[in-house]
Amino acid sequence: MPSLLKLDNLHIKVEGNEIIKGLDLEIAEGEVHAIMGPNGSGKSTLAYTLMGRPGYEVTQGKIIFKGEDITEMEPEKRAQKGLFLSFQYPVAVPGVTVASFLMTVLQSLSKTGNGRFAELRKNFRKNFKENMTQLKVDPSFATRYLNDGFSGGEKKRIEILQMMTLQPQLAILDETDSGLDIDALKIVSEGVSRYINPERGVLCITHYQRILNHLKPDFVHILTQGKIIASGGPELALQLESEGYKAFGIVEETRGTI
């Protein structure tokens, strides 16, 4: 399978502190990878850096996406190439409705000359409506202001709605499961599962195993203190679930996620 994402000895600094300290990861087309780790292990730092967040500095190593070095690329260029991040804490944009926002994004992406986006733009109304139905999002959300006054769970559903609308090639899900109740988790996971196909990949970042019951990852990695300390199949997540992080010699920090 052709490689989608390749990280080779990646080091990341934020505000002068090294958070990711030599991380290797390769995701091929069609694969679902999960990164699990305790709070403060660098999960969100990795997600933000893959998307090109300012202030997140790659000091060593490279981010290769579909064979291209994107380490220094602007966030919007990464989106144009097919990368997507479902935010742990989606940001409100008052005055901009969900539907007009996505239409604006597709219009802008179409200008890059990529026929795929022109096609998505053409079929926007139909797809958008279908996706809303699939995710059991009330139609009124189309005309509500993006994430403005949404509950945590609503925000996460809208993140996945955005993913389904933009159809990226690699979706990074940063704790998409947090803030979702069991039913919502199931619906959102089904949305992600339907999105997956042999050309697409998912990087699911999570603290807990429960979303992985639905997503069925091909590979699970355990991240702590900026390094992957164990990689394996789905059984690794189950082991973590039953034995806890302590079994991997990890002491959980009490502070919030970076």
Partner: peptide, 8 residues
């Protein structure tokens, strides 16, 4: 940053 990650 949020809006840029969507392609704007």
């Amino acid at each position: 940053f949020y809006l840029e990650t969507r392609g704007l």
